[in-house]
């Protein structure tokens, strides 16, 4: 957290409303993310995840990627979370607080996480210390779709095949026989 705040305070335009909002939302997101990985209740975890995902959508708006933000809301909050909730119901995962939701690896995992964050933070400050993102106007859906269907047609086709494969795979795995 401190490094995040440091990053924000390093910005000269601290008082700009955008930055205030950014700091607030980031704070909420990080807290929610921490709750996702620490709460004992699976349903609560899914709901905290909604908060994080919504926060990510807001970050996309900050970055001018409106279409991605809308997709984020539709796909993640609309579909993925519902899937998770179904999964929770189907697997009868424990609904109450459960002491054993976290395994005995907690200390090591915490260290790994902090180490990773430290490494990344150093690398980021080193490489992008004062790069600025200037958003003149949000990307239009036109640009995105033009790009998808011309320049990125092959990855697009690959993703569609992947989705098909995942669909078939999920059916094969989950059906009873």
């Amino acid at each position: 957290m401190s490094s995040l705040l440091a990053a924000v305070s390093a910005d000269a335009d601290l008082m700009v409303a955008q930055n205030v909002f950014f700091a607030l939302i980031s704070l909420v997101m990080v807290i929610a993310a921490v709750r996702v990985v620490t709460t004992g209740n699976v349903v609560h975890a899914a709901l905290w995840l909604v908060v994080v995902l919504a926060g990510v959508a807001v970050q996309f708006l900050f970055l001018g990627a409106e279409f991605v933000a809308v997709t984020q809301v539709l796909v993640y909050i609309g579909a993925v979370i519902v899937l998770f909730l179904f999964g929770v119901m189907l697997t009868k995962a424990s609904m109450g607080d459960d002491e054993s939701v976290v395994n005995e690896r907690r200390g090591m995992a915490g260290m790994v996480g902090l180490l990773l964050f430290a490494v990344m933070a150093i690398a980021l400050f080193d490489s992008f210390g004062d790069k600025r993102v200037v958003i003149d106007e949000p990307q239009s859906v036109n640009t995105v779709s033009d790009s998808i269907f011309s320049q990125y047609i092959v990855p697009f086709e690959a993703v569609s095949v992947l989705l098909l494969a995942a669909l078939i795979g999920a059916i094969v795995l989950a059906r009873k026989d």
Binding site: M108, A118, S127
Partner: peptide, 17 residues
């Protein structure tokens, strides 16, 4: 992950700093 973090750290120390 630990290995990746250590390797990335080593990389940073060697080349970036």
């Amino acid at each position: 992950f630990a290995g990746a973090a250590v390797l990335a750290g080593a990389f940073i120390i060697l080349f970036a700093l």
